[in-house]
């Protein structure tokens, strides 16, 4: 008989297909990237100096540690978890680099490696015992902070010159921050979106059981994500150390919520697996540049926090709106 004709699919209009394609092309990273570009454009319009190599350095350099922190948080959120300890972790890294490394580089590096191993262990604990990450990471945040205060009770210490000049590396041709930004974004985006194991990692956050049934180790995936988070936390601490020149256990406390905001503004979702490296970097830029922009516009300092929050909510509302429109158009 000739009846198994392809009728399962209802015919679609060309327009609909095009819209779907558009929806895929403008993935979750699109809106935050647009927002970051707009904010940066406004800053340049207000202060043309921002676009100069020096200006770029001044505006973007302080955001590099935040970007690393957001990427660290992104890996945890990709696992379907939340890391409330990343701020203290970065603070501890900063203290180790400013206090232990100058005295004994070997001990310092071993210490930093130990911190990564501790994160891996945290991932195992969360994956195997099914503990809520929010509790484990919150608990660990006090451990990181406590150890950091033990090493350095009040801010101080001196970051080795080598690290300072590495972090502030700024060749004449292209601003150093642009190089770091580009290399990191491309590397993480390629790994997460274009490598097979990247897909497995995202999948494990979205539906761990499904990935396990497909023959992958869910625990190894979780540990990989936590190790990646720890490595990017250390990078954040390294850049903070180089930029400030000293150690301070409390230095990155504000990164906990900022990093979560960065990931979510950058198109991530607490559901797990829904993350984009480009989006996260753009989200970090939005969260970070917003303060500078409001300052340039001359918003009163008392209103700055509220204004910053409002703009972030606006970005999220826009995203929800875009999702809703895409969904309505897809229905049938």
């Amino acid at each position: 008989m000739t009846t198994t004709q392809p009728v399962t699919e209802p015919p679609r209009s060309l327009g609909q297909a095009a819209r779907e394609r558009l929806g895929t092309a403008f993935g979750p990273w699109f809106l935050p990237t647009l927002a970051a570009v707009i904010i940066f454009g406004l800053m340049v319009a207000l202060r043309p100096l921002v676009a100069s190599p020096t200006g770029l350095n001044l505006v973007l350099a302080p955001l590099i540690p935040l970007i690393f922190a957001v990427l660290a948080q992104m890996f945890i959120i990709a696992a379907g978890d939340i890391d409330l300890g990343i701020g203290s972790f970065i603070g501890l890294a900063n203290v180790v680099i400013a206090v232990i490394i100058p005295d004994s580089p070997v001990a310092g590096i071993l210490f930093l490696i130990g911190m990564v191993v501790a994160y891996a262990a945290m991932g195992v604990l969360i994956a195997v015992r099914g503990l809520p990450s929010i509790v484990v990471t919150l608990g660990m945040s006090f451990v990181w902070l406590g150890v950091a205060i033990l090493i350095l009770p009040t801010p101080g210490g001196v970051v080795p010159e080598g690290i300072v000049s590495f972090v502030r590396f700024n060749p004449q041709v292209v601003p150093g921050v642009i190089i770091v930004l580009t290399v990191v974004t491309v590397a993480v985006a390629l790994f997460l979106s274009r490598s097979k194991y990247g897909a497995v990692l995202r999948g494990s956050g979205s539906n761990a059981e499904g990935v396990r049934r497909a023959g992958w180790s869910v625990i190894r995936a979780k540990v990989s994500l936590y190790v990646l988070a720890a490595v990017f936390g250390l990078l954040s601490g390294l850049y903070l150390s180089g930029q400030t020149g000293g150690g301070d256990p409390y230095i990155a406390q504000s990164y906990v919520l900022l990093s979560i905001a960065g990931v979510i503004v950058g198109g991530g979702s607490f559901k797990g697996g829904e993350v984009s490296a480009v989006g996260a970097v753009a989200g970090a830029l939005v969260v970070g540049l917003l303060g500078s922009l409001l300052q340039f516009i001359g918003v009163q300092s008392s209103f700055q926090a509220a204004a910053q929050g409002l703009v972030l909510v606006l970005v999220l509302v826009l995203r929800a709106l875009v999702n809703w429109i895409q969904k309505v158009r897809r229905t049938l």
């Binding site: 202060r47 100096l49 921002v50 200006g55 001044l58 505006v59 350099a61 302080p62 955001l63 540690p65 935040l66 903070l240 930029q243 400030t244 301070d248 409390y250 230095i251 990155a252 406390q253 504000s254 990164y255 900022l258 970070g288 303060g291 500078s292 300052q295 340039f296």
Partner: peptide
Amino acid sequence: GSAPQQAQQIQSLVLE
């Protein structure tokens, strides 16, 4: 309350 943010603000003030 955020030290990194204050550092960033200082640099913006320089630009201003």
